[in-house]
Nucleic acid binder design. Structure first.
Length: 780
DNA sequence: CTAGTCCGTGTGCAT
DNA sequence: CACGGACTAG
């Protein structure tokens, strides 16, 4: 029964067959990691007779879990595969909390707040505590609270930590602890958990209730964690606790692809795994099956710039492939046009499908220029992420009613719906209810239900009646939800809440699309109900549908209409995916690497890993592009090429951009010459070292892209301008220093004027031909 | 209490 | 630019 293991290479096979004890699999990009995980689970079941109920497999997305189950099902049978505990940390532990959460005082129907709900709740707390919102900025406070929770710091620990309190006092937020505490209490009263609570409360549950811990330790005899490099402290401890009894824990990951530090992931978890567990067996998957030699080589040369990493040697036996194309454009829309044109041409001239292409970017805002141009060329595309379907206002509005039908104490859902569609319940009324709820230490809903018992509320009779109508309506939804299937309920709500009517009045294209979104939601509820009917103990009730709707993402919806489309997504979302042709756009300073990361080595290394992830998505061809100008914050700003372009070894690159001519017109040359004296600040005294302070000011064409020999004309649009030094006084024999290549000696000179090049022998990297216009040389 | 309008501020990735 | 919040007039 092991024939399914054929086709695995030796380390892959070894990792599959090592079933007992702590195991770490370091899996380079494209090294068949998912395959190993899948086979390992199948092997456990088919060869070791392990019961699927005893296997816990934590994946990074629900989609990955689904696909793995499908593949395992093909080997061991689908009904068996269904019983594996497999999913994201959040979905698996939310499921456990539904069962066990009562021990912590949570109802089984607790609501999961998404990021938007959390922010609004925090905002409300800041208002209720009368704090200055200019100082207590919602985003900052939310980030801080999230970091506490991911580090398992509760308000109690916070108030016991002078350090943390001092940090916040220094940030002029001495009451941050109060906000933190009030936010937690508010959510608890509302029967709500935010994303971070799912992990924090799971941890608390396992810590405080040894019998519960024992139960799950006994259940999860074999544990697998994918993307271990992206686990945070809470996840780390939960896994450790669960694995403690049997110690059959297998973590899979790649430290080079750790890109979620910003949400609390701790790369040390993977770096320290061998210290954390006894007798760890380590397997390294280093052969890349995905990409060409060029792409693998380029990615390796890039990631070598990072200091903090586990040693490994990713290689491939695939073809060399084409060089990575580096392309400069005038503007962001130009960049979009170029990408669209390139996709169109390659799709026409070669055998590519549209689904073979992906456009990856650092920020969601960049998708727009791409979309516009793809649409213009009638190229079908699909955008992932951004404002996901479930985050759209109209969808959330309808879901808010559904949430109340399940858990009417859900405060954010109540605030969303209490006066939308308009029913004459204004801010003042809600404000008074809030104050009363806080006084009584109750959810707003509980005040509403008993409104006659609070005559001191000072709400006029008209408003009271409207509130009562609202309560009646929600209660009727709740009763319906108990007795009918999800589709009936949601359909009824959409019609009777007034939502559909309100949306229908808007005849603009946006309004029409909102109605369509509601219809799409209804469709997916219908699908859910039908799907549940096929499952043995399926639950077609609204409760079942709402269970983890907050944890769903766009990726989890598989739309057959989305076949053969170009994929657009952020690099973060592209993790784990692969495409024959990948465009990485916006390769510019302050964009990629992001402006907020350039001041710390750790952040910059994470950006570099992010670029590494982006590059290694490509199977056959990667394109890198950057624009000279780009709209940001509604303004046109000048851009300069990303430092990352320089960090890839030249030999893997093809700087083909015709507009990107190094040659200057006489006028431009004159301009440069006149600015010559301004050099001291320009030249980098820390050559080769830490780049952060060495980053030239805007317009300084510290071009990473040395022009290939034989480049000819100067394009009119090429508006290189700036102030940097051209050494006109160099000659053979001169000792020079280059910021990247280090010390060297000029062997000979070539060309003249702006075209003047020096052939330099560098001590460390050998001979290079550098164009003086671009090379930042320092005479020694 | 609603609806209409102006202002200002930010946008970094996301379960 | 584009959204949310604040302000103002009915």
């Amino acid at each position: 029964m092991t024939d399914f293991l054929q086709g695995l290479n030796p380390p892959q096979k070894a990792a599959v067959e090592a079933t007992e004890g702590p195991i770490m699999v370091i899996a380079g990009a494209g090294s068949g990691k998912t395959r190993v995980l899948t086979m390992r689970i199948a092997y456990l079941m088919a060869n070791k007779g392990v019961d699927p109920f005893n296997i816990l497999s934590l994946t990074f997305t629900n989609k990955a879990a689904r696909e793995m189950k499908e593949r395992i099902g093909k080997i061991v049978g689908p009904s068996e595969a269904k019983n594996i505990w497999m999913g994201t940390f959040h979905s698996v532990f939310a499921r456990i909390l539904r069962v066990e959460g009562h021990l912590l005082g949570y109802p089984s129907n607790f609501t999961i707040y998404d990021a938007e709900d959390s922010k609004k709740a925090i905002n409300n707390v800041i208002k209720e505590l009368n704090l200055d919102k200019e100082i207590y900025k919602t985003g900052n406070v939310a980030r801080r609270i999230s970091a506490f929770k991911n580090g398992l710091i509760t308000p109690r620990e916070y108030f016991n930590s002078p350090d943390l309190q001092e940090q916040d006092a220094a940030a002029r937020m001495p009451q941050l602890g109060d906000v933190f505490n009030a936010y937690n209490e508010k959510n608890f009263r509302a029967g709500a958990m935010d994303f971070d609570d799912i992990l924090l409360q799971t941890y608390t549950l396992l810590r405080n209730f040894p019998e519960v811990l024992a139960k799950y330790q006994d259940r999860f005899r074999y544990i697998m964690v994918d993307e271990y490099q992206d686990t945070n402290h809470a996840q780390y401890l939960i896994v450790k606790a669960l694995a403690n009894r049997f110690q059959n824990i297998c973590v899979v990951g790649d430290d080079a692809q750790s890109i979620y530090a910003f949400r609390g992931a701790n790369i040390q978890n993977i770096l320290n795994f061998q210290r954390d567990y006894d007798n760890v067996q380590v397997y390294k998957l280093e052969q890349n099956y995905r990409s060409t030699k060029n792409i693998v080589g380029a990615a390796n040369s890039l990631i070598a710039k990072n200091k903090n990493q586990l040693p490994k040697n990713v290689f491939t036996e695939n073809d060399g492939g084409d060089q990575i194309v580096v392309h400069k454009t005038v503007s962001d829309s130009d960049e979009g046009a170029w990408v669209a044109r390139t996709i169109f041409e390659r799709q026409m001239n070669e055998h590519f499908d549209y689904s073979d292409f992906a456009i990856l970017y650092r920020t969601n805002a960049q998708s727009r220029a791409m979309e516009d141009n793809l649409r213009r060329k009638n190229i079908p595309y699909r955008i992932y992420g951004g404002l996901s379907f479930y985050q759209r206002k109209e969808v959330k509005d309808l879901l808010a009613y559904c949430r109340l039908a399940i858990n009417p104490k859900d405060e954010e859902a109540l605030r969303r719906t209490i006066n939308y569609p308009k029913r004459g319940i204004g801010d003042t009324t809600v404000e008074r209810l809030t104050v009363k709820a806080n006084q009584e230490n109750r959810a707003i809903w509980e005040i509403l239900e008993n409104i006659d018992f609070f005559p001191d509320l000072d709400i006029n009779r008209g408003a009271i009646n409207k509130l009562k109508d609202y309560v009646t309506k929600i209660n009727s939804y709740r009763i319906l939800a108990e007795n009918s299937d999800a589709f009936e309920v949601v359909n009824h709500i959409s019609k009777t809440s007034g939502l559909m009517r309100t949306l229908g009045e808007d005849k603009t294209p946006e309004g029409v699309s909102r109605v369509e979104n509601i219809e799409e939601l209804l469709n997916s509820v219908k699908e859910f109900v039908e799907g549940q009917a096929e499952i043995e103990e399926g639950n077609p009730k609204l409760e079942g549908f709402m269970q983890d709707v907050a944890l769903l993402t766009d990726q989890d919806k598989d739309d057959p209409n989305d076949r053969n489309k170009v994929s657009l997504m952020t690099i973060h979302l592209a993790k784990g995916l692969e495409f024959p042709v990948v465009f990485i756009v916006g390769m510019e300073e302050n964009l990629f690497p992001s402006m907020m990361t350039v001041n710390s080595r750790a952040d910059l290394e994470e950006e570099r890993r992010l670029f590494y992830v982006a590059l290694t998505r490509a199977e056959k061809q990667a394109y890198l592009s950057f624009a000279q100008m780009r709209y940001r914050w509604g303004k046109l700003v000048d851009c300069e090429p990303s430092r990352f372009l320089e960090e890839i070894d030249d030999k893997y690159l093809n700087q083909s951009t015709p507009e990107f001519s190094p040659f200057l017109s006489p006028e431009e040359l004159q301009g440069f010459r006149q600015k010559r004296p301004n050099t001291a600040a320009q030249r980098n005294p820390m050559a080769g070292g830490d780049r952060r302070s060495a980053r030239p000011q805007r317009n300084s064409p510290r071009s990473p892209v040395r022009p290939p020999a034989g480049m000819k004309k100067l394009s009119d649009q090429d508006s290189v301008s700036g102030n940097f030094e051209i050494h006109t006084d160099l000659d053979a024999g001169q000792r020079v220093k280059h910021p990247r290549f280090g010390m060297g000696e000029i062997k000979s000179m070539e060309g003249s004027g702006a075209n003047k090049k020096a052939i330099i022998h560098f001590e460390n990297v050998g001979e290079k031909k550098l164009l003086l216009k671009f090379a930042k040389l320092e005479k020694i």
